[in-house]
């Protein structure tokens, strides 16, 4: 596959004190694909995400998003670039003093230059797209359930029609039906909008049902990044345990059954 690369990470190293999280890590994300990032706890999945979106200055190495190094850009240019990706944080990170629709409308008002009424109207569409009932728009994040917070955060991440979507464990804490619907939503949006998705997850069902490629973080680098069947066949104890343990087998079986239908 020769595709356009939207994120290019080369020789990345991240250290916290004496603890090395990443060392000589190389990583690519291609346009239009959904890439699942998996790895054990503490292998630095979230740190990788934070390094890519520019929240963390890596100790060494380069991170290029759309061919530009985010952290070395002037603030104005960087802000323009940041509008082209949306991030869904692990716990939603909704602004607790704003209602859901104000949360979604905020980037529309600030960046797209819409009036408040227009932004609210468009926010309603995004909220519906994320699968939330309309009355959720006027609620404050504190009165939403965990799954609804995730959906509201997705609506905000999608507000500016980003080209890259970063999702940090989007289906954690959702019920299986909600999680499956969420997966499908991401697949649909990715297909129809040409979204590139960087998806940190532990959810094997998500990997099997929507990911084009899977990257495995282990031993301080990306051990392998390829199609799921190739990754699952990789000879590494952790990968074998992960994909061929009881949960992995169940998810594979479910995916195969869904594929036959």
């Amino acid at each position: 596959m020769s595709q356009e690369t939207v994120i290019e990470v080369r020789d990345l190293s991240n250290r916290f004190g004496s603890q090395v999280v990443h060392e000589h890590l190389d990583f690519d994300l291609y346009r239009g694909e959904i890439l699942g990032v998996v790895g054990g706890s503490g292998t630095g999945k979230s740190v990788l995400l934070r390094s890519i979106v520019g929240l963390r200055q890596p100790n060494a190495g380069t991170v290029r998003v759309f061919g530009e190094e985010l952290l070395s850009l002037p603030a104005e240019r960087r802000s323009q670039l940041e509008r082209r990706f949306g991030v869904l944080y692990q716990r939603g990170a909704l602004f607790s003093s704003l209602t859901v629709s104000e949360n979604v409308a905020l980037p529309l008002i600030e960046h797209a230059g819409l009036s408040r009424a227009e932004a609210e109207r468009l926010a309603r569409v995004k909220i519906a797209l994320a699968g939330l009932p309309q009355d959720a728009g006027s609620k404050y994040p504190s009165s939403l359930s965990g799954g609804m917070v995730k959906r509201a955060a997705l609506a905000r991440a999608l507000a500016l029609d980003p080209e890259i979507l970063f999702l940090d464990e989007p289906t954690a804490g959702l019920d299986p039906i909600g999680a499956a619907a969420f997966d499908q939503l991401i697949r649909t949006l990715s297909d129809s909008l040409g979204l590139s998705v960087f998806l940190v997850t532990h959810d094997l069902d998500t990997l099997y049902s929507i990911c084009d490629r899977v990257a495995v973080l282990a031993q301080k680098k990306v051990l392998v990044a390829d199609r799921l069947d190739v990754v699952a066949a990789t000879n590494d104890p952790w990968i074998q345990e992960y994909f061929h343990g009881p949960r992995g087998r169940a998810a594979a079986k479910a995916a195969a059954a869904a594929g036959r239908q």
Binding site: V125, A128, L129, P133, T188, S192, L193
Partner: peptide, 17 residues
Amino acid sequence: EQRRALLLTVADAMADS
């Protein structure tokens, strides 16, 4: 295919709303 999927997704979401 993709554009149709987008239109249908948005149409469905807004029909509900």
